[in-house]
């Protein structure tokens, strides 16, 4: 998380980064990846997330503070698959930090480690904000997190060979707890299977793929375009023919359109945490899935 600092300290504090411990500075584009790095790296790493659960990761500006942070990073962990296409390339070029350029050990794209869904057959801007390399929101499938965790722990071991044994232990421990948690979540989420849910944006593809939930419709007429009244009334008709159980959205999305549709169709609107920090209870990746499933189940009744 970013720390607030006073304006004047900010202006005049040119403290050179002095690593007291030989920790690895990790710049994560999203909170889910800083949380994963924390799981795997413990006290050998120091992680920073460029965004919070309340910010749309598509729409971030290459702010001065982010350039200053990435300048001093040893490892960059991002979703990739063009999620950060508007700002990460700018940060990387501005930072002139050779450790973290694409292709270097210090550059890690999570989506590149796993199979991606929603790979479009054709990419045309008239289809909206589609990603040629598939849907980038891969962190909402815990099975994919597991694969990413293994690749990431390998990467940490390369960057910090002295810690290889340490990372191995942390990964084994995480992996064991994660595997158990997945089984538990799947058990808890059985009743969600086959349910139809309206989404704001296709952020939920991987979660729904894992739990067998069907996307009934999206509030955005095209990915990345705000919901219009015309589109909402069209959805009302669609949902009359084939009803849905609820409408879900992330903490950073506007609830206007969701509320309108909710009134018209009399189905609940559910804000899901989406990532770590999305609600107060969600302090790590385990909480993320536990809370998400709880909230989905609560809305079914």
């Amino acid at each position: 998380m970013r720390k607030g600092f006073s304006f004047f300290t900010a202006t005049f504090l040119f403290s050179f980064a002095s690593p007291l411990l030989a920790t690895i500075n990790v710049f994560a584009c999203e909170p889910e990846w800083s949380a994963l790095v924390d799981e795997l790296g413990g006290e050998r790493i120091s992680s920073y997330s460029a965004t919070t659960a309340f910010q749309d990761p598509h729409h971030i500006e290459a702010r001065p503070s982010l350039i200053a942070k990435i300048r001093r990073a040893d490892l960059v962990v991002c979703s990739g698959a063009e999620l950060e296409v508007g700002w990460l390339p700018v940060l990387l070029r501005q930072a002139a930090n050779t450790n973290i350029m694409p292709g270097k050990m210090g550059y890690f794209e999570a989506a590149a480690q796993v199979e991606r869904l929603d790979i479009p057959e054709k990419t045309d801007r008239s289809l909206g904000d589609v990603h040629a390399s598939g849907n980038p929101h891969v962190h909402l499938d815990p099975r994919r997190i597991k694969i990413i965790a293994e690749a990431l722990f390998n990467r940490l071991s390369i960057l910090d060979p002295q810690g290889a044994e340490f990372y191995q232990q942390r990964f084994d421990d995480f992996n064991q707890r994660w595997q158990l948690a997945i089984e538990q979540w799947q058990l808890q989420a059985r009743e969600l299977k086959g349910q139809r849910i309206v989404v704001h944006h296709r952020d939920w593809v991987y979660l729904f793929d894992w739990l067998g939930i069907e996307i009934a419709a999206a509030l955005e007429p095209k990915p990345g375009l705000p919901a219009s009244p015309g589109h909402i009334s069209l959805l009302t008709k669609t949902l009359t023919a084939e009803p849905a159980k609820m409408i879900v959205h992330t903490p950073y999305q506007s609830t206007r359109a969701a509320k309108r549709l909710s009134q018209m169709r009399n189905i609940p609107v559910v804000e899901l945490p989406y990532t770590v920090g999305g609600t107060e209870q969600v302090k790590d990746l385990f909480d993320l899935f536990t809370v998400t499933i709880e909230k989905l189940k609560a809305a079914l009744i």
């Binding site: 504090l13 040119f14 050179f16 980064a17 503070s65 350039i67 200053a68 300048r71 001093r72 930072a95």
Partner: peptide
């Protein structure tokens, strides 16, 4: 780009 906590270029 100076390696400071505050952006300084």
């Amino acid at each position: 780009l100076v390696p400071t906590e505050t952006y300084f270029k």
